[in-house]
Structures are given as structure tokens and as C-alpha cells.
Nucleic acid binder design. Structure first.
Length: 297
DNA sequence: TTCCAGGTATTAC
DNA sequence: GTAATACATGGA
């Protein structure tokens, strides 16, 4: 049998697939042994791979007729060089960019992004991935890839999760996040929260809508505002970013969160959400090697 | 065993 | 107003 494959080459300079798909903004991508990645987005099963000299090879294996989401999802609609040029030129920011040059912000689907980050609180990234995979297998829809082979699961819709019992959600290992996910799914499924409407709002107004959900505070709201809606001024401050800011800009002092937020709003420019993702990934990479990125004076 | 993980909501000063 | 604490679960 033959497998219909839609394969396209995207010419793009300076795209770091590893950093982009492994930096904790999306959770359904898996690294392949050959250097590529495979996963699910927009209801499609796709594979991405770097293609020399400066490009990406993209295959959408199922359904093969849908390619329209790729450019936006991969973050190619933003002028990357222009974004980088707005970053502050201090040594810490330069080091963060150098450590993962070519990292892009994806533009994700709002519901999957919101649901994923509701499940993210006080969990390790590997645990978030595992939990999301269990949720997809339990409540998403199975879709075949070709006529044989494994297939994949879609991310469950708000309606699919809204009709799940809390006990069934807890079986996915979601812990105290299970009722939060269920309530958010109900709000969206019932039309009380229209995520598409948030696109038309100012960032602060959209944030107010999101934090009205139980289990969604400023950090998770900022992740959704940045990763799904593209509000570049949204600056999620989690334990890693807080650590990065304190160590790199405040000599390791115990600076309160409010002061960190004020500093970031003033220091990192109009694309500070993008800058934040470099700081986050930089900090995590160096921590994994148990080597601090910079000596604290 | 104890501690911590891309936080948040509640309660205590 | 700011500072502790509980919240589920699993891995280091």
C-alpha cells in the first residue's frame, strides 16, 4: 500500500527546531532519532526536520490535505530578525540568545494551550507531557495514519472534556488540576468563555477573562496570551524565569515578584514575551547540566 | 525518606 | 497589604 504524504519544504533562515519544540511551550512533540520531530497540532499528525542549508522539511502525514496551518503555527509570520533587534543588548540577554539562537515562538490553538497550561502548574515538563498524552488517549479521537500502522489521538475538544467525569480525569494523573480543567472545558463548551473573542481584546482585557477561570492565575494566563494569541507583551514569570531574572539582573537577591514584573516590563522591550522564552530555555539548559549560567557575585 | 516540579487560592499576620 | 500553606502525583 502507498501512504499519501504531503511534504513541503519551507525556506527559512535560522530556525532552531530543537529549541523551539523542546522549550516548554508545546507538549505534544517528540524528537526522532534522525534529528527530526513528530507530533500533533491542528488535528494533524506531522513531522518536521531541519533541511540544509537553511530550511525546514515538513510532512503532514494525516490528514494529508491540510497544510494551511503550518506557517502560522511555526511562527513564520513574524519578522524574526526584527524581533531579535528589539532585545536589550545586555550580557545576560546576549548569552541567552546565543545559547538557543533560532528558537521560535509557536502560535498554538487557544483551547489546547489553555488546557495544557492548566495542567502545568507545579509539574515537571516531562510530567506535563505524559499527562497530556494520557488525556488525549482517554478523551481525544483516534485517527489513522494511512491504512495501517499506529495512528494518533487528537487533543480533546472542550465538549469532550466537559462531558468527562472528574474521576476519569484524575485517572490521567492530573491531581488537583482535574476539576480546573473540567470547569474550563465547561466554560468554553457552554459559550461562557469564547476564546476566539479574546483575539480582539487588549492584552490586559484578555488576561482578565482568563484569570477568571479557577486554577488560572497570572502565569498561566500569560502563557496562553503569548503562546496562543501572540500578545508579545505577555511575560510569564515562573520559577525558572524568576530565577533567571534574579541571578542575571539582581545579583541573586530575593527580589519580590512584583518588582521582577515591573523590571521585565521596562527592560525587555515590546517583544518581551519572546525574550522571556530565551531566558527560560537558557536557564533550564544550564540547570540540567547543574552548572549555573553565570557566577553570582 | 524527603524534596521539588513552567502555580493558584485560601488563610494568617 | 505581604507571608505561609494546602493542593495530587510522580520522579530524583
Amino acid at each position: 500500500m502507498t501512504l499519501a504524504v504531503h511534504k513541503v519544504s519551507i525556506e527559512v533562515a535560522n530556525y532552531n527546531l530543537d529549541a523551539t519544540l523542546d522549550c516548554g511551550q508545546a507538549f505534544r512533540w517528540t524528537r526522532l532519532s534522525g534529528g527530526g520531530w513528530q507530533g500533533v497540532a491542528h488535528g494533524c499528525f506531522a513531522e518536521f526536520a531541519p533541511a540544509a542549508p537553511g530550511g525546514l522539511s515538513v510532512e503532514v502525514l494525516a490528514p494529508t490535505t491540510r497544510l494551511d496551518w503550518l506557517a502560522d503555527y511555526l511562527g513564520l509570520t513574524l519578522d524574526y530578525a526584527a524581533v531579535m533587534a528589539t532585545f536589550p543588548k545586555d550580557p545576560a540577554m546576549k548569552a541567552a540568545v546565543k545559547s538557543c539562537r533560532g528558537l521560535r515562538l509557536l502560535r498554538q490553538e487557544p483551547w489546547e494551550c489553555l488546557a495544557s497550561f492548566i495542567l502545568s502548574s507545579v509539574k515537571q515538563i516531562t510530567q506535563i507531557r505524559a499527562g497530556i498524552e494520557r488525556v488525549c488517549r482517554a478523551f481525544g479521537e483516534f485517527r489513522p495514519i494511512g491504512t495501517e500502522g499506529p495512528g494518533f489521538y487528537t487533543f480533546p475538544t472542550p465538549a469532550q472534556l466537559a462531558s468527562a467525569s472528574e474521576a476519569a480525569l484524575r485517572k490521567c494523573g492530573l491531581g488537583f488540576r482535574a476539576p480546573h480543567l473540567r470547569a474550563a472545558a465547561r466554560a468554553v463548551a457552554d459559550g461562557k468563555l469564547d476564546l476566539e473573542d479574546l483575539r480582539g481584546l487588549a492584552c490586559a482585557e484578555a488576561r482578565e477573562e482568563l484569570v477568571a477561570l479557577n486554577g488560572v492565575g497570572p502565569k498561566i494566563a500569560n502563557c496562553v496570551l503569548l503562546f496562543a494569541f501572540g500578545f508579545q507583551e505577555a511575560f510569564p514569570v515562573d520559577v525558572w524565569v524568576a530565577r533567571a531574572l534574579r541571578e542575571l539582573y539582581f545579583q541573586g537577591r530575593a527580589v519580590p515578584l512584583a518588582e521582577l514584573e515591573q523590571f521585565s516590563a521596562n527592560h525587555f522591550g515590546p517583544y518581551r514575551g519572546y525574550a522571556q522564552q530565551f531566558l527560560f530555555h537558557y536557564m533550564r539548559k544550564h540547570h540540567d547540566a547543574s552548572k549555573p549560567p553565570q557566577e553570582v557575585a
